[in-house]
Write a protein that binds this DNA or RNA. Structure first.
Lengths: 196, 196
DNA sequence: CGCAATGTGGTCCACTCGGTCAAAAAAATC
DNA sequence: GATTTTTTTGACCGAGTGGACCACATTGCG
């Protein structure tokens, strides 16, 4: 009953996420969202409430995907040696950033620095994402330790957070257009920790 | 000739920097600057032009201080073993972030993620800062290698950028209120790279 | 003491902001 | 085709924006 929606809601969220991602929360106006989606302001607001809820929705979805990606790539089911899975995951994530032109980095980084201080809901989502990804890496590191690929004396939890941190750092560097080979050297230096 | 300035310009820049630092460029209005400094709009603009020039000035000053701090702490003149200087410097920088309440992290990180994509002047200043700090660390690593404290097979340049990146990561994590001991564990994991 | 130059606080302006709302349009149901 | 229900549109609102501008206060200099 009633008129059917004339647009795809998921597609709309994707377009809106790209706006928030590249221009930030305050840097994205409702008119920007209208122009990017081709929809009227009423349609957008009718679907997801206000600007803040819209932001939260796109960010939560994104973080969910990020965590799922990490778990999938690092889980034993992914196949291959544990150490190879860790390396493959990290190179995939950082490689994604080095290939961007213009560089937009990771939405998680952007949201953290952009609004986490003023928005506790965003801070919570971001914190959970960091912890979940670090935890996924930690599990893989422990697996690698059991397999004898990584020294038992190493702090698996610390390594998990270290690799998460390095990705944030590569993100920052890429945003200032630091040369791509420097970024890969940075990632390689981080991975050397495991091999040592 | 003419009336003398009734306020301290450096002190004004400090207050303004704190505003930009915690609320970002777009999140800081000219009225915020007036309230924070206690000055009229005319005084602020007369001294430094417009909002953008004001931002650039505070950011450039900050990065200059950051680079100077790194060079000073890592230079041979600072005394102590090269490896100890590196560890001391990194612990000082990351420790500063873990003790902040509320966490505001580093202005360099904030500016990079906030405006570097849209502002080439800011991107240039940030890039130079990253490269200069990484270079200072690289020099100290080479010194440590010559002294036999760090293995010669390690990539000094990569380690310089790695440690710069880890600081950015710790910054991001601290902004989401990740526990302090996790942040120190992250830093320790990074420093373990050198010892290994 | 004028006088010129500079600092100061306040006002004004054109514009943008996020959000609301009533009316129009369109689809589903009868 | 009429009715009902929902979407869509676009005008509108009050608040706030960055910046220009101005009258006036305050200073150093001749």
């Amino acid at each position: 009953m009633g008129r059917t929606r004339g647009f795809d809601a998921d597609q709309m969220l994707t377009v809106i996420r790209e706006q928030f991602w590249s221009h930030g929360y305050e840097g994205t106006s409702t008119y920007d969202l209208m122009a990017a989606t081709g929809l009227g302001k009423g349609s957008i607001y009718k679907a997801y409430g206000n600007k803040h809820e819209l932001y939260l929705r796109t960010f939560d979805d994104y973080c969910g995907g990020l965590v799922a990606e990490a778990r999938q790539a690092l889980a034993p089911e992914a196949g291959g040696a544990p150490l190879e899975r860790i390396e493959g995951y990290l190179l995939a994530v950082t490689g994604r950033m080095t290939r961007q032109a213009p560089p937009v980095g990771c939405y998680l980084t952007k949201a953290t620095v952009d609004v986490a201080a003023a928005d506790k809901a965003v801070a919570k989502i971001a914190k959970d994402a960091y912890e979940n990804i670090a935890s996924a890496i930690e599990s893989a590191v422990r697996e690698a330790q059991s397999a004898g690929e990584v020294g038992m004396e190493k702090d698996a939890k610390g390594l998990g957070y270290l690799l998460v941190s390095v990705v944030r750092g590569v993100d920052c560097l890429s945003r200032t257009r630091v040369a791509a080979d420097v970024l890969t050297a940075t990632t390689q230096a981080a991975l050397a920790v495991l091999r040592a």
